[in-house]
Amino acid sequence: MTTPTPIGSQLDELGLVLSLGDGERVLEAEVSAVTTGGHADIQHGPIRVPKPATGQTPVPHPIETRIVTVVTEGQDISDEQRARVCAWLTANNIDAALVAQNDVVVQCKAQGDRESGHAIGFHQIYRDPDGRKVYDPMTRDVVMFQRWVPQTVALDPEPAPQESA
């Protein structure tokens, strides 16, 4: 087994010299190396010295999950706002009458300014084949289930408030 040669010595042997002034030192370096041996050359690297500590390397292109709450449980909204949200749900093939009065959210993936995969999340009221609401026999609460539907039509922005004359 060979004794590893310090990278600084290896760089010196290759003629890679960096002139530093008094009191200056190298804090980090990144090198790509090609070695030969046997029948093929092998490209290594890049090799970074010193190695970054765990969690210190930035993620080059982070993907975020964004969640926008359209309506929250118990929120008081005007008749106009309710009509606007119901029209948006209907445009996305959701029966607004089956949406429980819980949170309604839009979730998507975002990378920088680009958003994709918009989905509408809500709790839907369960109805039997005859269209009647189903109740839990123990709690007597309406049975609901969480549902996600791809958003095909975006919610229009909230209209600006009109000034009274």
Results as ranks from 00 to 15, higher is better:
W148G: 02
A110S: 14
C86W: 03
N102K: 05
G23C: 07
H118C: 10
A160L: 12
Q81P: 01
S164E: 12
P150L: 08
T69Q: 07
R82I: 05
R132W: 11
A119D: 11
R147H: 04
P137K: 14
R82Q: 10
F145I: 07
R140Q: 15
A160Y: 06
A91F: 01
V99Y: 00
K133G: 01
D41V: 07
I7P: 03
R48H: 06
Q10L: 14
R82H: 13
H61A: 08
A160N: 07
D141K: 12
A119Y: 12
K51N: 09
E163R: 13
I42Y: 02
S9C: 10
I94S: 00
K109D: 14
R127Y: 05
E13L: 11
Q146Y: 12
D141L: 11
T2E: 10
H44Q: 06
T152H: 12
C86D: 12
V149S: 03
R147S: 05
H118A: 15
P6V: 10
F122C: 00
E163Q: 15
H123L: 07
S32R: 14
R127K: 15
G23K: 11
S9P: 04
D103C: 03
Q107E: 15
K109H: 14
P161S: 13
V149M: 03
S164P: 10
A33R: 01
G37V: 04
V142L: 09
I67Q: 10
A40G: 04
D95C: 01
T69A: 06
D128A: 08
Q151L: 03
D128L: 08
Q75L: 07
A165T: 12
V99F: 00
T35E: 05
G21R: 13
L18G: 08
D79Q: 10
T152D: 07
A40T: 05
C86M: 03
V26H: 05
P60W: 01
H118F: 15
A29K: 00
V142S: 04
I7S: 02
A83Y: 06
I7Y: 04
S19P: 12
D22Q: 09
N93R: 06
M144C: 09
R147C: 02
R25P: 04
R25Y: 15
V26Q: 08
R82D: 08
I7K: 04
L16F: 14
